[in-house]
Design a binder for these strands. Structure first.
Length: 497
RNA sequence: GCCCCCGUAGCUCAGCUGGCAGAGCAGGCGACUUUUAAUCGCGAGGUCGAAGGUUCGAGUCCUUCCGGGGGUACCA
């Protein structure tokens, strides 16, 4: 099916090219520069539905409508054409005795963009319709659209040629409309709370703010290597240091790692930083932001994901990391206070516990194995082991734990927050502890960032930070079980010619 | 990475135990002035993902490769 990148001209295409020529010979521009449109499909339908009882025509009213031909029912001296515009589908009735140049309709095909001028009517069956007096070619299509009833099903083609998916499948249009509106809702939410939206570099000297393999590139003008950012965190904190009290960024992160239903190498992250807030205040904001987006975009906080009925209305459940392990695994972390004892216990239970994993990683392993799949209703998991969170502030009175939460919905993580570590001397020590982990064989660690430490040494107020994977949120709100279904152009292997 | 499944007409899909490559939609021609997955008639349309192998004979069996999906491992 994809043996060629671009198939050669076939018979169907040749027929359409011939129609282009036929139009030109008849003095019709198949690609005119301008289009007249006075009404969308939705507006025409509303107009007809507002007609008084018994009326079959909006007398004296003339509308110009435009869209792509998605269906045609030719009945000889009358033809019905369905057009699709950005607001829906609209039926157009063309009759030989009311349309000029009825015979030129033979040069139209499914997929063409056309315009019609006519009068809104109600058909015998009550369907809002435009009875056309004239028609105009707006843009001739040289290929047939996908099948009208089944749509486009082949997932490869749907992703490689998203335009075909969009023109054929209503559900795809819905998913990406929701995505856009969710992001707009989040922006409104944060803007209304006094957050400043900022942009920070994607090309960076070295990766920071998370532990992940970066994509590499080369910066020609200064002849240096750059990495694509894996996180927004440290640049946004620099802005808090500078005095912006509430900042956020919504942007692409890049991690040169595996793909799965919830991982894509480039993904959209939203991070917020709020001075004088802590992680508990951030948690309240997070549940408000997500439930608000659901309400604004879907009209409800109740969603269905993989047969789970989920309610995003706040307050979300709160449980500590340790209590969750007690509840779901009957594992008491205080009884296994170091890497050796915890590794032995996990192995006794048959949980994967590699020798290179430090204490934090092992805790994470246990949580992922026992707890995460059970967190279906929205849940904040609170207070993480310090080893797992080098940028988070310790809990007062418990130096082994940090003030951090991750939020889980439908059994996967969709957000992460800390009370930010703002002690520059401790931050340096915590970075260096990461280096020790690396020396012990864990290659997924946070790197020391001296420039960030220098910034932190100038003083950062107590701050609550939050990160949320936008793609995952959109998965939840659209019921899509693969991240690729909420990304317009997911990465694909290139086709060999 | 590894495991499983899939790839047949522009699109959606059949094709049984190896024996003449099919249907619907779209497209072409014809009929039909209120249809809506319109209907009816006639024709047309194929590198069966690619290459090799087994066989008298391969869409079908075997091997390798290409592309996709699902699962699994690591990262959000």
């Amino acid at each position: 099916m994809f043996a060629r990148k671009v198939p050669p001209m076939d018979e169907l295409m040749a027929q359409r090219v011939a129609k282009v020529e036929a139009l030109r010979e008849a003095g019709v521009d198949p690609y005119p520069t301008r289009a007249a449109r006075t009404h969308t499909s939705a507006e025409v339908i509303a107009m007809v539905e507002a007609l008084p009882e018994g009326a079959t025509e909006a007398e004296g009213i003339v509308v110009d409508v435009a869209g792509r031909i998605v269906a045609r029912r030719d009945m000889g001296k009358a033809t019905f054409i369905d057009i699709l515009d950005g607001h829906g589908r609209l039926q157009v009735l063309l009759r030989q005795n009311t349309l000029e140049n009825y015979d030129t309709l033979k040069n139209t095909d499914l997929g063409d963009f056309v315009g019609f001028r006519g009068t809104p009517i109600r058909t015998r069956t009550g369907q809002p319709t435009v009875q056309a007096a004239t028609w105009t070619m707006l843009a001739k299509a040289l290929h047939a659209p996908p099948e009208k009833y089944h749509g486009l099903a082949d997932s490869e083609q749907r992703q490689r040629r998203r335009y075909l998916d969009l023109m054929a499948n209503e559900e795809t249009r819905r998913v990406f409309t929701v995505r856009s509106r969710v992001i707009a809702s989040i922006r409104r939410f944060l803007d209304a709370r006094g957050f400043l939206e900022v942009e920070t570099p994607i090309l960076q000297e070295s990766e920071s703010g998370a532990a992940a393999r970066p994509f590499l590139t080369h910066f020609n003008a200064i002849d240096e290597q750059r990495v694509l950012r894996i996180s927004l965190e440290l640049h946004l904190k620099r802005l808090v240091i500078g005095g912006f009290e509430r900042v956020y960024e919504i942007g692409r992160n890049f991690r040169n790692e595996g793909m799965s239903f919830k991982h894509n190498p480039e993904f959209t992250m939203m991070e917020t930083y709020e001075a004088y807030a802590d992680y508990l205040k951030v948690a309240e904001m997070a549940e408000q932001m997500v439930s608000n987006a659901a309400l604004e975009v879907l009209g409800t906080t109740k969603i269905t994901f993989r047969d789970h009925e989920i309610d995003l209305a706040p307050p979300w459940r709160r449980i500590t990391f340790n209590d969750a392990l007690m509840e779901y695994a009957e594992l008491d972390l205080t009884a296994f206070p170091n890497a050796e004892s915890l590794r032995a216990e996990l192995r006794r239970r048959g949980v994967d516990a590699p020798v290179t994993a430090g204490y934090g990683k092992l805790c994470d392993e246990a949580m992922s194995h026992y707890v995460e799949p059970n967190l279906i209703q929205p849940t904040f998991l609170l207070d993480y082991p310090v080893e797992l969170s080098p940028l988070a502030k310790r809990k007062p009175g418990n130096p082994r734990m940090v003030e951090r939460f991750e939020c889980f919905v439908a059994g996967f993580e969709c957000g992460n927050a800390y009370t930010e570590l703002n002690d520059p001397i401790e931050q340096r020590q915590r970075f260096e502890a990461q280096l020790d982990l690396k020396a012990a064989g864990d290659d997924e660690v946070e790197l020391v960032d001296d420039d960030f430490l220098f910034a932190l040494e100038h003083g950062m107020p107590p701050t609550g930070g939050f990160g949320m994977g936008i793609d995952r949120l959109v998965m939840l709100l659209t019921g899509q079980s693969s991240i690729r279904e909420v990304i317009l152009f997911p990465p694909m292997k290139s086709l060999k010619e």
